[in-house]
Nucleic acid binder design. Structure first.
Lengths: 158, 158
DNA sequence: ATAAATTGAATTGTGCGCAACTTAATTGCT
DNA sequence: AGCAATTAAGTTGCGCACAATTCAATTTAT
């Protein structure tokens, strides 16, 4: 969306906004999109050291806190569906970090259990958040505000 | 990175931070990543009406303001490389929205020129930013702050 | 009890992002 | 002029995201 559109909210015909509403430079969404890409790019060298991609790292974060979680619940936490998670989890299984077991009471669900290697990896991942914090070169307060706005945006949009 | 890490900056061993530094819920980057995905998801129904994806829409925004731009300069504006842009621009060419012409003075460069259909599409795209602004349900000031922080983050990280 | 509806996961297909590499054109150097 | 270095774009390959669909297991309604 375009920045500083308050005056637009008072007119029916948005397209008459002459002050460059279709200019890339004014679009909040583009900034968000580019920043998210840049963040993932910045994570890459850190995650290569433990042979994970950023989405794989997120899945491991969920597992480190919720070992044995199923695909649906992990998807709810990560805002991702089985179309993304199933192949991702298969790759992590191939790496030997987890096992994908069928639920005992319900054959449909897949429970994801960390292997010892998967549990051990947590130690090596501990330094990553602080390294990223340093790379950002932003004050904690601004990062907190950024997170709060992103969380609001996410819940408003869904 | 993890939220509220100020106290961590004063200690050498980051891994001793016991207060959940590896918890998904505290990670600014995850919020940013999820919000960016959600934004693109929210654009989709609007862009389907004009048969564009979000990255294709961004390329069209660049062209509407800079007709005849080359791939390298477009990449600089969008923070994307030729590996992403070449196939994307080929798809837009297939749709009949642009022509990819060789530079006259330098045979290496590709100049991207809008067709009449490509120029015409701008009219239909004009209402999109305001629709997205409404979907966000956030005050203009907060969106402006979000954009400012994202822009800073992007330039600090690169 | 059984047919219908729902649910959890997997599959298929498309389009990014990006690293790594290739190709061809241009520029710089001597 | 001639050759090395650089540059712009394209290609290849991998891993997401996600819509759409499929399939099997479970739940529900009758």
């Amino acid at each position: 969306m375009t920045d500083k559109q308050a005056h637009v909210t008072h007119q029916a015909d948005v397209t008459t906004n002459e002050s460059g509403e279709l200019m890339l430079e004014n679009q909040v969404c583009f900034s968000l999109y580019s920043a998210a890409n840049a963040i993932i790019r910045a994570y890459r060298p850190l995650l290569e050291a433990i042979d994970l991609t950023y989405p794989q790292y997120l899945a491991m974060l969920v597992l480190w806190a919720n070992n044995g979680i199923n695909v649906k619940d992990m998807g709810a936490k990560l805002h991702l569906d089985s179309g993304t998670l199933t192949p991702l989890l298969k790759r992590l299984e191939t790496k030997g970090l987890l096992d994908r077991k069928r639920g005992l009471t319900d054959e449909r669900v897949r429970e994801i259990w960390l292997t010892e290697a998967g549990k051990t990896l947590k130690t090596q991942a501990k330094s990553i958040p602080y390294t990223m914090f340093c790379k950002s070169e932003l004050p904690v307060e601004e990062l907190a505000a950024l997170k709060a706005t992103c969380d609001k945006l996410l819940s408003n949009i869904n």
